[in-house]
Structures are given as C-alpha cells and as structure tokens.
Nucleic acid binder design. Structure first.
Lengths: 191, 191
DNA sequence: GTCTATATTTGGATAGAC
DNA sequence: GTCTATCCAAATATAGAC
C-alpha cells in the first residue's frame, strides 16, 4: 500500500505546521523555536532537515504551488463549455483558499515577499504554470464573449479579489463557498 | 501663512520615510536603525519622538487612513449620478494606491498584521469610516441597478482587486490609471 | 533634541555528544 | 536524527552626557 515513509512524514508534518504558523503570525514573526516546538523538536534539530529558515518557507511555497497547479488543472480538465470551465476554476481557487489547504495557500499569496529575490524568481516561475491555466480559460471565455475585459487584466483583478477573501471570508458563515463562487462568477461575466 | 513648524516637519519626514521603507521591505524587515538613517538620526534619537517601533507603524497608518478618508470623501462629494460617483471612488482609490500617497497606502493594505491586536482594533475603527463612504456609494449603485451583487460583498472583492494592483500595476506602463479605473468600472457594473 | 554607549533580548545557526 | 549547549549577529530600547 502506498504508505509514506517516516522520513517523508516528518518533513511533511513540518511543512504543514510551518504553513499554519506562517499563516497565523507571518513568516518574519515566526521563530525557528516555534517551528521546532510545533513538531516536538529542539530548534537545532530543524537544521538537520533544512539548511535555513528561509528554505522552510521556500519548501512550503513549492509544495503548496505544486498542489495548487494540480487542483486547478483538474478543475480545468472537467468537461463543459467555457462558462462552466471558468466557474470550475473560480470554485477551485476558493476551495484552495478556504479548504484544508488554506494555510499553505494563504502563505503563497501573502508571504512570498519574505523570500530573497532569487527565491522569489524561482517561485514566480512555478506560479506561472498556475497562471497559464487561468489565462487559457479566460481567453476562451473572452473569445466566447463571456467576459469583455482583457483576460490578463481580469486575472490580476481576480487574483487580488480572491486572495483578499482570506481576511474576511469564513466558510462556516452565512455565505457558503458555492454561493461565493457563484457571485464572483456573476461579477466577472455578463450580468 | 500656515507654515508647518519644524517640530512637525521632522515627524512628518519620519512618517514619510517610514512609509517608504515599510512598503519596500516590510515592517518586520525594517530596523529602527534604517529608519533613523533615512532621516539622518542615530537610532536612539528616534525614541525621543516615538515610544516604540510599533508606534511608528501605528502613526503611519493613522496618518495614511485619515488622508484616505479625506480623498475618498472629496471624490464622493463631487456632483453626479450614482455611476459617476462610483467611478470617482474607483479612480480615487487607485490614485491613492499609485500616486504620491502610494507608500503609506500600500502599508495600510498589507502591513497592518504586524500591529498588536489592540492597535489593529484601533486602526479598524478608523478604516470603517473609509469603508462607510464606499458602502453608501455601492448601495446607491445597487438601488439604481448599476451593480447586481451585494454591495458589501462587492466592496470586499473590490478591496482585494485594488490592493493587489500594488504588486503588478505600474502607472508609467501601457495602461494608464484612467484606463485601469475605467476597466474596473466596466467589470463592476453592467457590461 | 541629538549623540554615544550600552543594556537586554531574541533570533538564526552551529558543534559535538549520544 | 535528535539533543544540549552555545555562538554570534542583530534587534529594540534605555541612560546619561552635551
């Protein structure tokens, strides 16, 4: 059975706890001692697994964005016309932002500035694969007359609108995620 | 002549430089030594003007949000129908984000999490006055059938879309600010 | 009101035993 | 692979002279 090896378990656990802490307090205000505590290690022991604190953030981001690409690609691959595809992507991104993956995704949206310039470039390259999926769907929607603003511009505005939901949207409130996705879709496409 | 006193000049200069540095590097990665350097002081001398590093961030935010309220209120007070008012507010917010006020406004959007919980509450109260102006305009637009999504939801999505422009929009590029504002307006209102 | 000097804490990271 | 112990740098903030 495809059971993860203990070695990978430990690393995976650390990445999850790191995502949670970086999301809750910000990368800069999270100490390596807090990270170590969260996985039941002494701070020095962390450096057996990672070269530096920054490399932990980098690993969180890489892992998270790979996952984002996977989920978004799956949503884009579902059958349907351009409207249905666009709705699927909106729904997928909101699920990434508010489902089980939320901590890592929040970090991906709002903590990348704590990386060195070099690491930022590296992450940007990864992120481009994610954005390409979006752009293809938006260009299709544009050709079909579903959206009238430029796809590139539309995506950038949408990125901000979606990312910001982290700061106000609670899926257990009166507006459920399906409904939010629907409203975003209405706003984006012909009303 | 209403000339600012030297005492106020110094404080004002520090707030401007602090906004610039906090915007460029983030509050947490800006040291008091850098702040002091930027205004030609030794680090210890800063504490004659401010109680703590956090109180500098708080002062930047208070000053900036007061200014945001002022500008937004002015835009809202201009004559015109609900569509024109909405367009004026969009334009005003984008000017705040990309004009001379941009550093402070960027800090207001993305650095508030570095404040203590108490200070965050304080800033939130101030910010509510800003948001009230938006909500009134959006409710008007909603009554006139200009927008169909809930005004409150619309504002939250718009906040994110606008704030995120910090990370990609450059007013000296091919898309000027008037044009961007126009596109945002198109997206928001009936297309 | 600014300086110099420094107290004090905390942070990331390393060394070497086990 | 983890622990203990600790190094070292950097940070915020303070004290007291000028």
């Amino acid at each position: 059975m495809n059971r993860t090896a203990p070695r990978e378990d430990r690393r995976q656990l650390l990445l999850e706890e790191a995502a949670r802490l970086f999301d809750a307090h910000g990368y800069d205000r999270t100490s390596v001692r807090q990270l170590a505590d969260a996985v039941g290690l002494q701070s020095g022991s962390l450096f057996h697994h990672f070269d530096s604190k920054e490399s932990i953030l980098l690993a969180v981001l890489e892992h998270t964005i790979e996952l984002m690409i996977e989920r978004l690609a799956a949503a884009a691959a579902a059958p349907g016309d351009s409207r249905q595809r666009l709705e699927a992507l909106i729904r997928a991104e909101l699920e990434l932002l508010h489902g089980a993956t939320r901590h890592g995704v929040a970090v991906a949206f709002f903590q990348w500035r704590s990386l060195s310039t070099q690491s930022q470039q590296q992450i940007l390259k990864l992120r481009e694969r994610y954005e390409t999926i979006w752009l293809e769907a938006l260009e299709l929607a544009h050709r079909d007359g579903l959206i009238v603003t430029d796809p590139f511009l539309t995506r950038r505005l949408l990125t901000g609108a979606h990312g910001w939901t982290i700061y106000w949207y609670r899926p257990d409130g009166s507006l459920d995620l399906d409904r939010l996705a629907e409203e975003v879709g209405r706003l984006l496409t012909r009303q």
